[in-house]
Design a protein around this nucleic acid. Structure first.
Length: 330
DNA sequence: TTAGCACTGTAAGCACTCTC
DNA sequence: GAGAGTGCTTACAGTGCTAA
């Protein structure tokens, strides 16, 4: 809990705070290394040798340490030294401190190299299935210390998240209203669309079904302004197809699936999503994909990050992993 | 550039143990 | 018990870093 001035208690300079007192009096890592070397060798000269320093320098370190702690740390004997109870306890603590520093060193190295850390990515639904999930699977194997957070949403929401720094990058499209120079986009894929309905839907029994045939039914679509919805609206307008009057707006793929599996509503999704819930049997045989809307022109999606922000190594690794999958799928 | 400071090494002295 | 060997402490000087 933060202290009265909002500082972490460990960082506060408290009168009588022991570690702080030691540090203020000049306790250094060299002191801690010496007490450990002394514990191991039982001789100041050998301890000095172990630390690659001279014996007088080691002697001075020990004296300083005793002045700092205010207790006798080693019993001088005719041949060598033995640690007192205080010395043994300090050595035990020194071992923990140095081990923690080793751990910190390893952790920072991992962060620098991208072997560990956290990455937050965003994706439109189709890209999440096609690119993010495989990348996560591979990362679990090759970089088990990396935590991945995924936000699946529409491109406009993801762009705002990117601008706010809530995600490192996303797969989607930069809304036309924004300055594209602010973003660095790498083309990934086209996103053909499919209409999906429940398996027993009347449309599944028709041959040569078209988008026009879908109009009388309830629709479940992404919210106003979402890329996919804008593309569908523009396509229908251009083809002279009347726009459906009964539309449920949601960006939730779960709610969308529940509605279409229990009613005669239809929805338009990216083909990977349709494939996932139909070909793979994930829809439990309750979802069917209609081969319509495949020619709806929709802007291809890209891997997008802020042009002004350099990715952390762990995020850069994940970014490159997704790019490498794109080249495999080409 | 320079003064001050911290750190380190060398040399000398002291204490203790071992061996004869 | 005395001399030799080992180990620790102290004084002093050199070196490198930092701040003015």
């Amino acid at each position: 809990m933060p202290g009265p001035k909002g500082l972490d208690p460990l960082l506060q300079s408290a009168e009588g705070g022991t570690s702080d007192r030691f540090l203020k009096k000049g306790l250094r890592l060299g002191h801690l290394r010496l007490i450990l070397a002394l514990e191991r060798t039982g001789h100041l000269s050998r301890a000095a040798e172990l630390l690659a320093t001279s014996q007088p320098a080691a002697s001075r370190l020990l004296t300083e340490m005793e002045q700092i702690t205010g207790v006798k740390l080693a019993e001088r004997q005719g041949r060598g030294m033995t640690l007192t109870l205080y010395g043994e306890r300090l050595a035990a603590r020194a071992r923990l401190v140095l081990r923690e520093l080793d751990e910190a060193d390893r952790e920072l190295e991992n962060l620098k190299s991208g072997l560990a850390g956290s990455v937050s990515v965003g994706a439109v639904t189709g890209a999440a299935v096609e690119y993010v999930l495989p990348a996560i699977r591979q990362t679990r194997v090759t970089h088990p210390l990396v935590n991945v957070s995924v936000e699946v949403n529409t491109s406009d929401v993801l762009t705002a998240a990117l601008d706010d720094g809530r995600i490192d990058f996303f797969i989607g499209r930069v809304p036309a209203a924004l300055d594209p120079r602010s973003y660095e986009a790498r083309f990934l894929d086209h996103e053909p669309l499919r209409v999906i309905v429940r398996a027993e839907h009347p449309l599944t029994r028709l041959s040569g079904v078209t988008l026009q045939d879908c109009v009388p039914y309830d629709w479940v679509l992404q919210p106003d302004g979402a890329m996919l919805r804008v593309a569908v609206e523009a396509y229908m307008r251009n083809k002279g197809i009347p726009y459906p009057t009964k539309v449920l707006n949601t960006s939730s793929i779960l709610l969308t699936l529940m509605v279409i599996s229990q009613t005669n509503a239809i929805t338009v999704v990216a083909r990977p999503v349709a494939d996932f819930f139909t070909l793979g049997g994930e829809g439990g045989g309750r979802i069917a994909s209609l081969d319509i809307a495949g020619d709806v022109p929709i802007q291809p999606y890209s891997l997008i990050k802020l042009a002004s922000r350099k990715l952390a190594p762990v995020a850069q690794n994940f970014h490159d992993l997704i790019l490498s999958r794109a080249s495999v799928l080409e």
